[in-house]
């Protein structure tokens, strides 16, 4: 059997929200309500759901970018939720993230070379020349050039920026990459390029992806396993083919029925 590389058990995360007259009252919002998932090594686990379903909160909590209320996140035998400070930083080298908005997630005042190389600098991997080499190799691998190192993010198109974001995440040779809606801000043609690039890189670098998306057509192409979330809860999970062909939960059925152009595709 294949190995589980990242496992989350019974995650709970609540936010308080101001409510009532003048916001004097507060209500608790359960963003994650007893969520358990497991990511198999070298595979892609897609998390799908509508806005407010808790899928981005799940991503952030897995990487400990937000503290959990309770639950454990197991990676390489360690519970990430219990780590802190330097221990957590050391583990983060293996857990990287690709963000949704390629316009907001790159520092506009840094050159692309600096953006991609920053992780190597922080984790002190190799000397300057080696870091430089790694950055160049990574940029080339994602379809950019050595000359692009000197450019600023605004000089690139959305698709190219997303390539920079991918290079930044992968230059550290992580084990797990969390992709939070990596293609939803892109044109379909660019979307296809980025999806194929992600798939190629997965095979080359033995990456495991946690792929967050609301687009079930995209998920179908990239994922092996799938988790459907609604209102902070996991309503259904399983193999992609099983869920697409025999969705058990009403919410999943509704999601699948709402895919645009479905009628035409079937016809």
């Amino acid at each position: 059997m294949s190995n589980i590389i990242l496992q989350a058990n019974r995650l709970v995360k609540t936010y308080t929200q101001r409510s009532g007259k003048f916001g004097f009252g507060t209500t608790l919002v359960r963003a994650l309500d007893d969520v358990s998932i497991s990511l198999t090594e070298g595979k892609t686990l897609a998390v799908v759901g509508e806005s407010g379903s808790g899928k981005s909160t799940l991503a952030r909590c897995l990487l400990q970018l937000q503290p959990l209320d309770s639950g454990e996140v197991l990676f390489a035998g360690q519970d990430l939720a219990k780590l802190s400070g330097s221990d957590l930083r050391a583990v983060r080298k293996n857990l990287q993230m690709v963000f949704q908005d390629p316009f907001a997630s790159l520092n506009p005042r840094m050159r692309v070379g600096e953006i991609v190389g920053e992780g190597l600098l922080i984790h002190q991997l190799g000397n300057t020349a080696e870091q430089q080499k790694k950055v160049i190799a990574m940029l080339k691998r994602v379809g950019l050039t050595e000359a692009d190192m000197q450019k600023y993010p605004h000089e690139f198109s959305g698709g190219q920026r997303q390539r920079v974001g991918i290079a930044r995440a992968l230059v550290l040779q992580p084990k797990v990459v969390v992709c939070d809606e990596p293609v939803s801000a892109l044109d379909v043609s660019i979307q296809a390029q980025i999806l194929l690039l992600l798939k190629e890189l997965q095979a080359e670098m033995a990456l495991s992806y946690l792929f967050i998306s609301h687009d079930l057509r995209v998920v179908r192409h990239i994922a092996d396993d799938i988790v459907v979330m609604n209102g902070g809860k996991v309503v259904e999970q399983g193999k992609v083919e099983d869920i697409y062909q025999h969705p058990q939960h009403v919410y999943t059925q509704n999601l699948l029925a709402a895919i645009p152009g479905k009628k035409a595709v079937n016809a």
């Binding site: 379909v188 043609s189 296809a192 179908r220 992609v240 699948l256 479905k262 595709v265």
Partner: peptide
């Protein structure tokens, strides 16, 4: 070409 890069729901 544009139609070819639209992912279909059947995969």
């Amino acid at each position: 070409a544009l139609l070819d890069c639209v992912p279909d729901a059947e995969g």
